[in-house]
Amino acid sequence: MSKIRFATIWLAGCSGCHMSFLDMDEWLIELADQVDVVYSPVGSDLKDYPENVDVCLVEGGVANEDNLELIQQVRDRTKTLISFGDCAVTANIPAMRNMLGGRDPVLKRGYIELGDNSPQLPHEPGIVPELLDQVIPVHQVVPIDIFMPGCPPSADRIKATIEPLLNGKEPAMEGREMLKFG
């Protein structure tokens, strides 16, 4: 039997969920035995998201056009998509910019009002991705199979979510241990 093709991606988040993923410590070695890590900012050097991925953890909300493009590609190429951590599930802290009321006020606030030397708006089409009007949770853009809240989800919670999947089972996302936000 071929190994499970495993991936993680990172959109608008702080990487804390990935750090928590690494906190699984020695279980990571066990995981590495059972899966092929085909794409991950912390476990692989590939630049393009491959086809036929079995499981993918998505950290972070959708904040810019790059995020949007990537998540659509990921959805198309992945069987089980897991919304990984509060930013993916709720947009969380990145979404605090939404209260400023859209893309332009955010850029103005960040680059003009708070800019130190020669304040200017970033504009490099094709290089710097355009911001979306709002940062939104991943499930508002593509269907999600499993939600794993937490800021970050603890290593135990991550393990309890992934482990059953490796054995072809659904993880039981219920109770304080698995569901508490924050």
Binding site: V62, E130, D133
Partner: peptide
């Protein structure tokens, strides 16, 4: 799909 491209600008 729940998003669309309007005048080159992505709207969700």
């Amino acid at each position: 799909r729940g998003y669309s491209q309007v005048n080159g600008k992505v709207t969700i």
